[in-house]
Write a protein that binds this DNA or RNA. Structure first.
Length: 502
RNA sequence: GUCCCCGUCGUCUAGCCCGGCCUAGGACAUCGCCCUUUCACGGCGGUAACGCGGGUUCAAAUCCCGCCGGGGACGCCA
């Protein structure tokens, strides 16, 4: 096979905020493709119909563009291998699933989620690996046809060799061996007719002529399934390269629970896109001369996979801040900086959101400064004392902050949605709304008397509010008494629904 | 629990592939000093790491094995 054009992709799923991890993976894919004179593709993996939404898709595209990562083919600009939105490629996946079925490489499964749940519980209890037990694999063809005719819902599962070892090649780690007995008979087509990641990703990467897959380390264990699919289809598999995962300070996989992960948070805080991108490029990768500050173009110029280090890098806000400062000092003249500030928040659009909130509170125009300072700030300097100025005791405030932090993930981010959230929390905690709110004025706006809370939160955005709430919690600490700890868990338990991102 | 991946200062990393130049280099953070009307910037200096144990070798951060530690995966999520 002669050297084909290098084609890489980033394939985010549009559920929730645009994640820095997505940008990190996109950056490496972009650099690799460009370094080799190839193309970089954006594909939207929205096969999870319940969680995918167009707002999130738009946010992902806008945030990548904001960072300066542009793609050669994608949902809105099209390309020769479109559509680039998986929800629009349903027929293609069904065709391929049929082909697997026909060739005897996949089978229909009629098991209910309930049965599967029970099966998993039993497997865990018995200390066995969880995985489909193959019940429907053994169904006689006549019964399959009968149930099909009867209109019974089913999924399509992958047939997996029952013995032997799968060897997956990773560009960074060499050969990785995984026993086939540990590979699950993965669902390829869901009951709703949509493919799972595993099928869609293989079919699309092939059809879109992707040559190299740079993706998170979390995918290593499903690589055998993908390799098997390529084999069943008789396709050549793209080269695999698993990138180390970005980490929280405690080394766990970066999550919004412990760290700001939304790209919008960084934008809102006033980080420069080139600095954030530069920092992401310093995660697990280094310039040949070890220099710290470099542009995207320079990174492309010097990019090579060998310079990736495998240890999972901790995303360190302090170092990002230092780097951002360098970009501000060294790469922007005064005029350019002024323009950036205007672009960031000193613009008509943003000002017009603030004016209605403060007009009644202004005696002279110069009152504007202190009143709106929270809208031009990142984290605020607040103390535990300030948070406790209201009627509630420390434990109750701590509980309220924690509960709100959890609830705000699922709340609709509008003034009325935020209000509804607080009213509901007040009810559940059996506190009057006016008693619940004072600590939140402090946490969000830095002082007990300020612009209206719900409006402020809407304008500030979910990301900054999350960060300020988390900051307030740090100042205050956890609830002290065991009783209150239990109460918190109880309140949290009710809404411990929000799945982690990505 | 099972499997997989990873393991250099607190953090990001250079060095590792092709053993000696490593009494392990740089950066962030931290501490001290200098510059300075303050702060910041800048300059100078300090503290601080090859996880442990075995091999191989004249020589190991670099190669091999074991242990330990961390992480990830085990979804009709991606």
């Amino acid at each position: 096979m002669s050297n084909p054009v290098v084609r890489t992709r980033v394939a985010p799923s549009p559920t929730g905020d645009p994640h820095v991890g997505t940008a990190y993976v996109a950056l490496f894919n972009y650099c690799f493709a460009k370094k080799h004179g190839g193309q970089f593709i954006l594909r939207i993996e929205d096969t999870d119909t319940a969680r995918s939404n167009p707002q999130s898709e738009a946010a992902i595209m806008n945030s990548l563009r904001w960072l300066g990562l542009t793609w050669d083919e994608g949902p809105e600009i099209g390309g020769p291998h479109g559509p680039y939105r998986q929800s629009e490629r349903g027929a293609i996946y069904r065709e391929h699933a049929d082909r697997l079925l026909r060739d005897g490489n996949a089978f229909r499964c009629f098991c209910t989620s309930e049965r599967l749940d029970e099966m998993r519980i039993q497997q865990r209890a018995a200390g066995r690996n969880a995985g489909y037990d193959g019940l429907c694999l053994r169904l006689p063809e006549t019964e399959v046809q009968a149930r099909l005719v009867a209109g019974e819902p089913y999924v399509v599962r992958l047939k997996v060799p029952d013995h032997g070892t799968c060897v997956v090649k990773d560009l960074l780690r060499g050969d990785i061996e995984i026993g086939w007995d540990l590979v699950d008979m993965q669902i390829l087509l869901k009951q709703d007719g949509m493919p799972t990641y595993h099928l869609a990703n293989v079919v699309d990467d092939h059809l879109m002529e992707i040559t190299h897959i740079l993706r998170g380390e979390e995918w290593i264990n499903s690589a055998p399934k993908h390799q098997l699919l390529y084999q069943y289809f008789g396709w050549q598999m793209p080269a695999l390269c698993h990138l180390p995962l970005l980490r929280n300070p405690d080394k766990s996989k970066l999550s919004k629970r412990k760290n700001p992960t939304s790209i919008w948070f960084y934008k809102r805080m006033g980080y420069l896109p080139e600095a954030l991108l530069n920092y992401l490029g310093r995660m697990a990768w280094s310039m040949p001369d070890d220099s710290e500050k470099f542009s995207l173009a320079k990174m492309v110029e010097h990019f090579s996979l060998e310079r990736i280090s495998l240890g999972g890098p901790v995303f360190d806000l302090q170092k990002l801040q230092w780097l951002n400062g360098r970009w501000i000092r060294e790469d922007l003249d005064e005029k350019a900086l002024a323009d950036r500030v205007r672009e960031w928040a000193l613009n008509e659009n943003y000002l017009m959101k603030l004016v209605p909130l403060v007009q009644k509170r202004l005696a002279v125009l110069s009152d504007l400064g202190p009143l709106t300072a929270p809208f031009f700030s990142g984290l605020l300097e607040i103390t535990a004392d300030q948070l406790l100025q209201g009627k509630l005791d420390a434990d109750t405030v701590a509980i309220a902050l924690e509960v709100t932090l959890a609830r705000m993930e699922v709340a609709e981010w509008t003034k009325s949605g935020i209000e509804a959230m607080f009213r509901d929390i007040a009810t559940k905690m059996e506190i009057k709304l006016r008693d619940l709110l004072p600590p939140f004025y402090v946490a969000i706006n830095g002082q007990p008397a300020s612009a209206p809370l719900f409006d402020s939160m809407e304008i500030l955005g979910r990301d900054l509010c999350r960060a300020r709430l988390r900051h307030a919690i740090t100042q205050l600490g956890e609830p002290k008494s065991d009783d209150n700890k239990r109460r918190l868990n109880e309140l949290l338990g009710r809404q411990e629904k929000s799945g982690e991102e990505e």
